[in-house]
Simulated assay, not measured.
Amino acid sequence: MFSGIRAVLFDLDGTLIDSAPDLGGAADAMRTLRGLPSLPLDRYRPMAGAGARGMLGVAFGITPDHADFAALREEFFQGYERRMTSSTAVFEGVPQLVAEIVGRGLNWGVVTNKSMRFTGPLTQAMPLFATAGAIVGGDSTPFSKPHPEPLLEAARRLELAPADCLYVGDDERDMAAGRAAGMPTVAATYGYLGGTPDIDHWQPDARISSPLELLLLLK
């Protein structure tokens, strides 16, 4: 149970929204364009939180140090941009969670490593985010998670001390960023998790297996 919390900050992909169908679909379309067989969504889903790096790793088995990575990444970005709201949906329970947070007089916001090229249009297209007090993307500051600066920027925008904010995410870097920012952290174990995680190693202050469980942790 957390007390004294005045705002809840969330990661985006895998925590508030299920964007894996569109992320995976964009990468899989690149495979089929090249005559490769389609892969099932279940192959892409665990790595959806890693964005282009995760999707291209699944689709083509390449890493960012590969000579073709930059070109493939931009191709992926363009493909994702064309479809990023086609099949993306808010996780079950998230609208009720956000409504209850607002109803309790708390602020809320988003801190994601997704660049504002995608985060801006995506959040503007989804009614859920109309009440968000801060939306910080991966390029909103000079750093991205696990660096604490994006979380600190969100706290500044909300005019709150970091310790007044709770951070919820589905990746180890989310917990690391929260700790470094001086915020209590909650691991969303219903999210993508990055493959085969050891959540105990992440050292979250708490964990939830569904969005609405978060309400039980907020006094």
Rank of each mutant, 00 (worst) to 15 (best):
E92W: 01
D22G: 04
G103A: 11
A155D: 03
E75S: 15
G35D: 05
L158P: 05
S87G: 03
G49C: 06
T88G: 06
T119L: 13
A132Y: 12
G137V: 10
S87D: 12
G120N: 12
T141R: 08
E153M: 13
Y80V: 05
S144R: 15
L23G: 04
R157M: 14
A125Y: 09
K114Q: 10
P64M: 09
V110K: 04
M126Y: 04
G103T: 11
D28Q: 07
A134M: 10
S38A: 15
W108C: 04
G93R: 12
R45M: 03
M84E: 11
A154L: 06
F129Q: 01
P46L: 11
T88A: 09
G54S: 06
V136R: 01
G93I: 13
F91G: 01
L158N: 07
I62F: 08
M126Q: 09
Q78H: 11
T88P: 03
V98L: 14
K145E: 09
T141Y: 13
V102F: 00
E74R: 14
A70Y: 09
V110C: 10
S115V: 12
R43G: 01
H147P: 00
T141I: 12
T32P: 03
A155P: 02
R34A: 12
S144T: 15
M84F: 15
H147R: 10
V94E: 04
N107F: 14
Q124N: 14
E92Y: 01
D68C: 07
Y44F: 14
L122F: 13
G61C: 09
R157S: 04
P40I: 08
S86I: 12
L152G: 00
V111W: 11
R82K: 15
P127C: 06
A20D: 06
A134V: 09
N113Q: 04
K114A: 14
P148C: 09
L106K: 08
D139F: 14
M30P: 04
S87Q: 12
A20N: 02
T112R: 08
A154E: 01
E81Y: 14
G25Y: 06
N113P: 01
R83T: 15
Q96V: 14
I101C: 08
F76T: 00
A20R: 08
A99L: 05
G24L: 05
L151S: 03
G137C: 10
